[in-house]
Design a binder for these strands. Structure first.
Lengths: 346, 346
DNA sequence: CTGTTAGCGCTTTCAC
DNA sequence: GTGAAAGCGCTAACAG
């Protein structure tokens, strides 16, 4: 009682306008197929009735909904939020909506999300993959749903990825440290199984080593807590590397917290470079030298690939260049190439 | 050619199981109405076929989709991301999906989002309102769509809100400053038309004045840029208030940037309290004293209100308490109640 | 240019 | 317990 949620339907408009439903439909979707006079009348009536076409019915009929799915481990990571903004931006511009799903890094949740999105008949899915659901990804592609990965590469066949050029970015960091005279670095790597952490760690180590330095890799959860723990580990040593390279902004948060709590002076006691440039990097003391990613652009490009035409010849993996933002967390060492790195870091 | 995106439908399952579609539907939705034997068989076949019920068809039939809409000005504001996480958490737990929409603070985009969500037959909408679409909000409620506002109060009839207890939080900040001996404060208010900024500014001023202090309010865009500009304005004065109160984390970013660039020492030259406690607040030097909001809980509560039963007697506006996190950005003044506030701050 | 017809895939009475 | 039938609101041939 007292509940008349009578949505007005296309049929209502048709009746009032004295035309058939299909004409109304046309007036809305292909106006050029309807005589100007009736078109105007229909549109006018539709407006006056506050008519909104039912997307659900439309999607059922068309077999596809103007919707994109976005599966992220956690939207509150600033990098992810920026990616989401980019995705949403082009989706909205093209008339698509965004369904957001959190995987929380859990393969089961990811699977649930993928299946859910499929059942929603989304036009495409943008996915930060755990890598544990490759078959499902491939199956979705088979069914005609476009899938594009961001930030990681699961290895699923037929699924392109958009991510930062981790090799280039990590090399930038390594080189910068090398040039500042550092020859011994501690790498807070995170979970090396993740494309981002793995590639960054490896590329950094390779470049740094090639330049005559020695890199020690420490793995830990890719979270602030993981970074915190890694930093404590670093500090607990007798002799310490002169520089620390952190592969994600999340971990950097923890690293910084630890250094701060222990009263470690940056860059006097330790130099720091972070892969990723969260908004706070320039706010801390000292401001952090960081490898900036084009997060929003990654989102945009991913959305474009999902929505755009399929170019068979197109590169499967798109790597967006990064940029080194020099701030004040790296000390220039007095004796470049000198004695800092012990001959045997182990 | 080479494109057989044949989704398997309920009918396929029925055929293979040798039963009618309705039985399959029952087996899936009300298993108790189907004999255990057939039920098992159906479920088994469904599984082997990789069958996923089509949400679109289901939603059309049911006239409602298990989906919530979330309209935010910008997901990359950490407070919003946390709200979103909260919303998503309870939505997911209850089997609902989330459609994310960015209003970018534009009433037109908000209207578009609202209309879009309506056309998707979402079960409910969680909205950070611009306040310029009250009639539409009310109309949606009339049509049976639950709408709940977060962080702001538009004033739309029948639309509850969930937000921080701005009065309590601002009072906390004022009191803290008062107790530390401050008697003259500069308030970076932001856009006072927004519930958050307005309430915080007013409550702070009132409490601070009541305690014998003088508060000067400065309005500016509620963005980092706005904060930056406000801080410069503050700095450009001859005599300055001893404390600055910033009503949002976004603006605090800009304020900090400005202070840093100008080499202003906190809290020696100016004390700082921020309403909102973004993840970086504890990372900067000095760590910022902040009023912490229960962002995620705001999201959860909002989602619960959208999804839960309708309690007619329930309070329309839910204000979640905040907490003062004392860190190191407030100086204890030597001469409490003394001469800091000039008799005539103007 | 416009109306008629036939569903999209699923749920839901209503019979059997 | 299970099937048949109707239809959610819209679109897309196909006629006229």
């Amino acid at each position: 009682m007292g509940k008349p949620p009578q949505r007005t339907s296309l049929e209502d408009v048709a009746r009032l306008a004295g035309v058939s439903p299909s004409t109304v439909s046309r007036a809305l979707n292909r106006p050029e197929l309807v005589s100007p006079a009736t078109r105007e009348r229909i549109l006018e009536i539709a407006r006056s009735l506050g008519y909104t076409p039912d997307q659900v019915a439309r999607s059922l009929k068309r077999g596809k909904s103007p919707t994109l799915g976005l599966i992220l481990s956690d939207i509150s990571v600033s990098f992810h939020a920026d990616v989401a903004r980019g995705v949403e931006e082009v989706a909205q511009a093209q008339g698509y909506s965004l369904i957001l799903f959190h995987s929380q890094e859990s393969p089961e949740r990811e699977r649930a999300g993928l299946e859910l999105l499929k059942s929603y008949r989304v036009a495409g899915i943008i996915l930060e993959p755990t890598g544990k659901n490759r078959e499902l990804e491939e199956a979705l592609v088979q069914e005609g749903i476009r899938v594009v990965e961001v930030d990681r590469i699961s290895g699923a066949k037929g699924v392109p990825s958009v991510l930062s050029d981790n090799l280039q970015g990590a090399a930038l960091a390594a080189e910068h440290l090398l040039q500042a005279g550092h020859r011994w670095a501690f790498v807070v790597g995170g979970e090396l199984g993740l494309t981002s952490c793995g590639e960054r760690t490896e590329a950094f180590a390779r470049r740094f080593t090639a330049g005559g330095g020695a890199a020690e890799v420490y793995t830990c959860p890719s979270t602030p807590e993981g970074g915190y723990e890694a930093a404590l580990r670093y500090l607990s040593r007798g002799q310490r590397p002169s520089a620390v390279f952190v592969t994600t902004g999340q971990m950097a948060q923890g690293v910084l917290q630890a250094f701060q709590e222990q009263g470690i002076a940056i860059p006097q006691e330790v130099s720091l470079v972070v892969f990723d440039d969260p908004p706070w990097a320039s706010l801390v003391s000292p401001p952090l030298t960081a490898v900036r990613q084009q997060a929003q652009e990654i989102g945009r490009k991913a959305a474009q690939r999902v929505l755009g035409e399929r170019f068979p010849g197109r590169p499967k993996i798109l790597r967006l260049p990064t940029e080194l933002v020099e701030r004040a967390s790296v000390a220039r060492l007095a004796d470049p190439g000198g004695s800092y790195p012990p001959d045997n870091p182990a």
